[in-house]
Amino acid sequence: MNGFSPFLKKEFFELYRKGRLLLFGILFVFFGILAPATAKLTPALFKMMSGELEQQGIIIKDVTSTAASSYEQFFSNLSIILIVFVVVFASSITSEFSKGTAIPLLTKGLSRVSFFLSKLLSSLTIWSAGLWLCFGITYGYTRYYWNDDSVKSVVPAFMLWWLFSVMVICVMFFFASLASTHIQVLIGTGCVVFTMSLLGFTQSIKKYLPSSLTDSMDLCTGKRSVSDILPAIIIAAAITLISAALGMMLINKKKI
């Protein structure tokens, strides 16, 4: 693990200097506010438009929003942030090799495993901290505006979504350890997620698919319980660990 801590420090310094901390900070806060704001404003918007819609023959009665509308909006926005995150971080490893910036440090004794783990850990840290901040904001506003019982286990539902996102990021780093361009990383990661979503149409295997961890509203509303998707949780955790371990092995074999 030679050079792990200085390289990790460099990774955070890079996130700061390149403005990525600021970018994702703004993004997470924005999406944290967006969900409750959208839910809060929807009834008012419908009310404003009701006159116009009535002329077209659409009659709107009593549109109300609940805490469930806020969380529904929140969970559907999360995939957008994850996609932005993956697109930005897909080049994290490949660009170091294609530009050659990793070479001087690797020849100075920085181990390849330290290089890989610093990259993985720094991106997981910024992702997790940001995501929890985003959730905290939504949670706070939602509690403030709607103190109803339309949602139950929202924290476990969010934690499962977080586990899914960590799995996707680890899969991305696995592809980054063998790919030579960030496009290959994106294609690889995209294919894995897309295949999971496709397989999700088959109900019988759904409970084994990590993508079912993102059916957060089913969990929030009690339609499904955590124990129903336990196999998917175990498989997601296994994919996360295996991707990270394989990534560490493959980076050691990489031709530079």
């Binding site: 420090k9 001087p104 440090l105």
Partner: peptide, 24 residues
């Protein structure tokens, strides 16, 4: 290296400090 590439967002001093840290 033949065409050395460094982290463009650092100054020369910062880069040398990083190299020193890496070598322990």
């Amino acid at each position: 290296p033949d065409v050395p590439e460094f982290y463009g967002y650092m100054t020369a001093g910062e880069y040398l400090r990083l190299c020193g840290d890496i070598t322990g």
